[in-house]
Write a protein that binds this DNA or RNA. Structure first.
Lengths: 214, 214
DNA sequence: ACGTTGACTGAACAAGTGTTTAGCATGCTG
DNA sequence: CAGCATGCTAAACACTTGTTCAGTCAACGT
């Protein structure tokens, strides 16, 4: 448990520290992890952590920025080339899901993004604002395409859709427990998206259509 | 700042400690608050805290239980007598809001409930399960009254509605920032509920009706 | 009046925190 | 080769943490 770095690892020690910090911060929060734990996970001495990043706070800022960059990259990837996913009405409520599908299933990024959104940090504010802008853009595009209405209060409607979307990420573990299925698993995503689509499509009142077989 | 207790305060010191812990835990999380800070806020010595509660962990458990009890009380109040709020279709998406309206606007309870839902604690699991059951009950009742459909996947639909509802609580500060209005303020609740009602009523596609004037 | 119980405090303790310092290699550059 | 920066560590520092201990004070029952 002391030395976590595998024998073949061409990342610099600095990168290893950053990655382990990302993983541990995401899992337990910055206050729930000590510099010594990060150092042990990275297989280095505690002093090296502060040597590379100045302080624990400095490390946190670097990780924040790194996560923000990675997220932007993933977002740009799916918003630029053809963008079949984003502006598909069937994908309306799964913006976050779409981003997460671009990541390995054991990625520490979702957990860290979750904390960014929940904790009161500058990076979190930036992230949230960016997501809100995207949500507004999607709603606007759908509206112009005649696939949705912006409603009486477009800003609130965009916020509502985004909040609903993020709720799955924020409450993932809890939902997994009561539903018996991880909403981010293939099966869970199918079931969740199906209901979201039904409600967004024609409201709560509409009679349930037959289960469609693909 | 040292002695927070007002001169007239008939609560026992034990109750004062519990209340201050509730407030501080809700604001900064149990790990973000020291026993000394709680003691100072309550105007007592740190030793008295552990004298009454055994340990910091013991205090946390008592506060958890206290919050759970208070919440159940508030829930029972609005689910029993006539229950005009709960099973009103116009109140579908505002279960949490309805509970919060029963509290003073500066109550520390919402913040603590938020942490219960987000952190991985036993009390949080119980709370979430309880909320899920209520959501299922509401959906079932609305369905029997012909005011909503349970959809193809009633459990997921109930979870979806609950998650959307809770998202406002979890993201309150962030939403306040991008929208410029607190979604729990009278104005914010009106705007938010209006969009929720519109979407739940007839989906995203429906044309925006005229703003209704009461 | 005495003794016991309970609320309560100041001081101390062991453990863990982030950070500093001095020093050891190693490898590049003059 | 000398010199200097770089990556890195062990040890220590000052501080905070939760908790313990000995003891004071007031209230209450006998």
């Amino acid at each position: 448990m002391l030395y976590m770095r595998s024998v073949k690892d061409d990342r610099t020690a600095r990168a290893v520290i950053r990655d382990e910090a990302l993983r541990l911060f995401g899992a337990h929060g910055p206050d729930g992890v000590s510099v010594r734990q990060i150092a042990a996970a990275a297989g280095v001495s505690p002093a090296l952590v502060v040597h590379h990043f100045g302080s624990k706070e400095g490390l946190r800022e670097v990780v924040d920025q790194h996560v923000l960059d990675t997220f932007d990259e993933a977002l740009a990837e799916m918003t630029q080339p053809g963008a079949p996913d984003l502006y598909d009405p069937a994908a309306t409520g799964s913006l976050a899901e779409a981003v997460l599908r671009h990541l390995p299933s054991d990625s520490p990024l979702p957990g860290y993004l979750r904390r960014l959104l929940l904790d009161d940090s500058e990076a979190g504010r930036i992230l949230f604002r960016r997501l809100f802008t995207v949500s507004q853009g999607v709603l606007s595009t759908l509206s112009q395409a005649g696939l949705a209405s912006e409603g009486n209060d477009p800003a609130v409607r965009a916020a509502f859709l985004m909040a609903n979307d993020l709720a799955v990420l924020l409450l993932r573990d809890r939902l997994t427990e009561v539903l018996g299925v991880d909403p981010f698993s293939p099966d869970g995503m199918r079931r969740w998206a199906s209901e979201v689509l039904a409600v967004y499509g024609s409201g709560l009142l509409a009679a349930a259509p037959r289960q469609e077989e693909p």
